[in-house]
Design a protein around this nucleic acid. Structure first.
Length: 305
DNA sequence: AACGTCACGGTTGAC
DNA sequence: AAGTCAACCGTGACG
């Protein structure tokens, strides 16, 4: 599964990030949007999937959930530091349309503007005196519109996720959760939806790429077998044998390099396949080149268009 | 006002 | 070892 970031990764990051929050704490301001407990409480239900999940026990939050994101990190709120930064340039491409002015002093462009080109404020634009970024050992901390701290591209720490789910369990509405924990409502919505659907509060696996079609566990196993039966077998021979045995076809057969990699990981050492790798890679290259030339693109390309 | 959705800029890790 | 790519992230804006 690999993507360990969902498990161990973030914790390490957030550990140092938490420490940095005390720094932020020293310069941050009392948020004018200070969250207020909302009297009306409606249990959250994900519109997509009704049945709630039984698994992934949620820790007890207690009757008085923390008032802010910063407190959720174990940090007190303190006073202002309005470091203003240059807004970054907005997005340039677009697909939907938008009309009218945009919050934050942006003026409307004439006529409908495709949405992706909408003159939005750059993300995390400090419209209420909050600094764009929090100085952290990681140099990645930012503050959202609600005054919450987050690391762009990284999952919220587990305790915040737990709190979100826990509060929802207590019947607190997502909008209130969002304000109290200072997490964007889109994020609260996403986490609760995921929890409803999967029963897990954990973020998904980040990073990595899909294993190539050819290198399925079955194929891997077969490669191991071949190599065990005949240790002197070359990668390209294994590849040929995979094709001959119908384990895969020319389209999804693993490359020679892949086979070598698999063998390296299974058997260690580098063996003789290193050498024939290059040769075979060349062969493959020529092969695909030849194939390409016989494709429509290749033929058209040859005509010089 | 509340909330679902999605583009965006970002991170990550297998290939 | 370095680059690519496709997964994921949370935010912020629209509807």
């Amino acid at each position: 599964m690999g993507a360990g970031s969902a498990d161990g990764g973030p914790e390490t990051s957030w550990a140092s990030f938490d420490a940095a929050l005390s720094l932020w704490n020293r310069v941050s301001t009392n948020n004018s949007r200070s969250p207020e407990a909302c009297p009306e409480q409606t249990a959250y239900r994900c519109p997509k999937t009704e049945p709630g999940p039984p698994s992934d026990a949620v820790p007890n939050l207690g009757p008085n959930p923390p008032q802010s994101h910063l407190e959720a990190f174990g940090v007190e709120k303190k006073s202002p530091g309005a470091a203003h930064r240059e807004p970054r340039p907005g997005p340039e491409s677009c697909s939907r349309t938008v009309e009218g002015p945009v919050e934050g002093g942006m003026t409307a462009l004439a006529g409908p503007v495709p949405r992706m080109m909408r003159p939005t404020l750059p993300q995390n634009y400090p419209r209420n005196g909050f600094p764009l970024e929090v100085s952290t050992p990681l140099g990645q901390g930012r503050v959202n519109q609600l005054g919450g701290v987050f690391i762009n591209g990284r999952p919220l720490p587990n305790h915040i996720r737990h709190k979100i789910v826990e509060m929802a369990h207590h019947g607190i509405r997502p909008c209130v959760i969002s304000r109290q924990l200072r997490v964007s409502h889109g994020c609260v919505s996403k986490i609760l939806c995921r929890y409803q659907e999967t029963g897990s509060i954990r973020p998904g696996a980040i990073g990595g790429s899909k294993p190539k079609q050819g290198t399925t566990p079955d194929v891997e196993r077969r490669i191991e077998e071949y190599k065990r039966e005949n240790p002197g077998m070359f990668s390209w021979e294994i590849r040929d044998k995979l094709l001959k045995d119908g384990m895969c076809d020319r389209n999804n057969a693993p490359s020679v390099s892949s086979i070598s990699r698999i063998m390296r990981s299974k058997f260690g050492g580098k063996g003789d396949e290193e050498e024939d790798d290059e040769e075979m890679d060349k062969k493959e290259l020529e092969d695909s080149d030849r194939r390409a030339k016989h494709s429509i693109e290749g033929i058209l390309g040859d005509r010089g268009t």
